[in-house]
Nucleic acid binder design. Structure first.
Lengths: 147, 147
DNA sequence: ATCACTGCAAATTATTTGCAACGCA
DNA sequence: TGCGTTGCAAATAATTTGCAGTGAT
């Protein structure tokens, strides 16, 4: 899990973003941001909501959704959909992006990263004239335990 | 667009699958299957429904959804979600799988494929002991026109 | 004849929005 | 003080399901 100081640094980025966008700093927004940024377990919205309320129950679902959008717009979190109808969020790690291996039976999620793939990807985008700013790469199948 | 005969061949596969699963061949199922298998433009459910009804209005939304699930279970179509809340379907091409470049501004979708990435992917799955049977690889950004 | 399938309408589920009260700056 | 923000409840929107009637084998 991310260190306290790395979360603080991201909160700082968030505040800068909010200032530039004319958004206000509020207890709820900071709470939700700390919950999501402090845990990279592909949290479901419901889990984020529950975890935030455990710390301070004065937060509503709408605020969680609205704050997640702000965090996404600020480029601090990534939105993921693994095909089970639930949207998940995890902190954007900036440095090395990672992708996912998903077990279609037990729903276990394993992360992986490959510089080789990232490089080839960039090349493909260039060939098509695209300016890519995010990507998703997911492999679905059975994990060792479920085979 | 796929040739008539290649669609026929897939319908044949579908019938075999349905027989083995104890499912019945019906006018509606074959109609929906022909619509989806005969067009690989990442069709939205609504478009599939509309296209099917244009040919024969005796089909309901539930049947479209139910048939799409059968086609997916039979491995004949792939389900795609590009983050705009709409689920899309396209025929599974078996031979070379392709992936997508998506413009976040105009929603244009460009396909690409890379043997190099596929190979590296297989290697990664093997390293983690996963038996992968499908994957999604999507690059999001701005297309040349929207930059 | 049997048992799966169909369409419709109602139910479900994730997410968004209207709005009056509230709280940063 | 003023305008953005909040939580609630109601509204949406995509998908699923219950059920009585229909149809394939």
């Amino acid at each position: 899990m991310p260190s306290q100081s790395s979360v603080d640094a991201k909160i700082e980025q968030l505040l800068t973003y909010m200032r530039s966008a004319g958004l206000k700093r509020t207890r709820q927004r900071e709470l939700v941001a700390r919950v999501v940024l402090g845990d990279n377990q592909h949290a479901k919205v419901e889990e984020i909501y529950a975890a935030a309320r455990r710390i301070d129950p004065r937060v509503g679902y709408s605020t969680v959704y609205r704050t997640l959008r702000i965090l996404k717009d600020a480029g601090l979190v990534v939105e993921l959909q693994f095909g089970d109808g639930l949207t998940r969020y995890e902190p954007e790690l900036g440095e090395h992006h990672h992708d996912h291996l998903i077990c279609t039976s037990c729903r276990k999620i394993v992360e992986f990263e490959s510089e080789e793939i990232e490089a080839r990807q960039a090349e493909i985008a260039r060939e098509h004239g695209f300016r890519v700013d995010s990507h998703k790469h997911e492999l679905y199948g059975l994990c060792p335990d479920c085979q």
